[in-house]
């Protein structure tokens, strides 16, 4: 195998698909059956969520019955309450906007940070490389139940900075550096503290350089070194090679990491609940969870409706990146 791989040439693969017509028909039927079963398996539970979303009683559907309603329009009670009538109590659109800002920002930064690290792990050989790789894997598996407490106290401290720092600079008052002693010039720090979307993004970035780096490194490894070599000979810097050459080549894995990070942050609840206090600042998941947070009488109807609505952005993001993920086999590599 290695002998065939030593001098890779990247060409399109249609030529290898040499099969007889019968073999092809059987293969396709088999595939369709597999896909059929998979779709039923995947979507059957979702059906219940859909039924619950349209059920005005607010309970999770327990049977496959159509929700009992007096009028057809009652079917949309949950959606109507969420999206239109109860906006003064639950600012649903605001939550969606917040979720988008948090998820998109942290996704982009995550992709960037892990791509940089993965490039270094893949292309440079240095002492402690494998130990570091192992290390970032290990720290991520620490069952960190106290992280919540530690992170909360940290965010609280960051919020306190805008009060502490001006005190430190109090002696500068009146001088040309007086602005440093003005609490106003440090207010921006609060956008990374408690009850802020910035703080939440910061916390999410803690997971940026974890498993993603591994996934990307595996992919980077499969890009032949010859490409870098020839560029180096042409006088390109490492940065230029990374940014101009490799980055476009690894689109599939960037898209995969992007989808993973987006879904992960969009659906994250525990940390968001810890950091965000005001209803206006909530992300969608925090908002939805308070419908099922009551001790007994939980409003599963609204939760289900919201969960369906919140599923849409994820599917859209996936759809828009799908071409990157499964697009023509290493089509980009030909340019190299």
């Amino acid at each position: 195998m290695s002998s065939t791989a030593k001098a890779p040439k990247h060409v399109h693969h249609e030529s290898r698909m040499v099969q007889s017509g019968r073999e092809r028909a059987v293969g396709l039927t088999l595939r369709l059956i597999v896909v059929g079963i998979a779709i039923v398996f995947a979507l059957f539970p979702v059906l219940f969520i859909v039924l619950s979303a349209f059920n005005p009683a607010g309970q999770l559907s327990s049977g496959l019955s159509i929700p009992r309603v007096n009028e057809f329009s009652d079917l949309f009670n949950n959606f109507e309450a969420l999206l239109v009538t109860e906006l003064d109590i639950w600012p649903f659109w605001r939550w969606i906007a917040n979720s988008f800002i948090v998820a998109t920002t942290s996704t982009i930064l995550t992709v960037l940070i892990s791509a940089l690290s993965a490039y270094a792990f893949s292309r440079f050989r240095f002492r402690g490389r494998r130990q570091m790789l192992l290390g970032i894997l290990l720290v991520q598996v620490f069952p960190n139940l106290l992280a919540l407490v530690a992170l909360f106290l940290m965010m609280d401290q960051i919020s306190a900075l805008s009060r502490i720092i001006p005190q430190i600079f109090a002696f500068l008052q009146g001088s040309f550096l007086g602005f440093l002693a003005d609490p106003g010039s440090w207010q921006w720090l609060n956008t990374f503290g408690l009850n802020s979307l910035g703080g939440l993004i910061l916390i999410y970035l803690g997971g940026a350089m974890g498993v993603n780096t591994w996934l990307m490194k595996g992919f980077f490894d499969s890009i032949p070194r010859d490409i870098d070599e020839s560029a180096h000979v042409d006088g390109a810097t490492d940065w230029q090679i990374f940014w101009l050459l490799i980055f476009p080549l690894v689109r599939p894995v960037l898209a995969v990491v992007g989808v993973l990070a987006f879904v992960g942050t969009f659906n994250e609840f525990v940390l968001a609940r810890l950091i965000l206090r005001d209803t206006q600042n909530w992300t969608l998941m925090v908002g939805l969870f308070q419908f099922i947070n009551a001790d007994f009488n939980r409003d599963w109807g609204k939760f289900a409706a919201g969960a369906l609505v919140s599923g849409i952005p994820v599917v859209i993001v996936y759809l828009s990146l799908q071409r990157q993920i499964v697009g023509g086999l290493t089509a980009g590599a030909v340019k190299g």
């Binding site: 791989a5 992919f219 995969v256 086999l329």
Partner: peptide, 22 residues
């Protein structure tokens, strides 16, 4: 999740490998 990462990773397998096998 597995489907996603496998889809991405399948792209990393150079097609000429298959060709040789074929």
């Amino acid at each position: 999740y597995m489907m996603l990462i496998c889809s991405g990773a399948l792209q990393a397998i150079p097609s000429d490998v298959y060709e040789a096998a074929a």
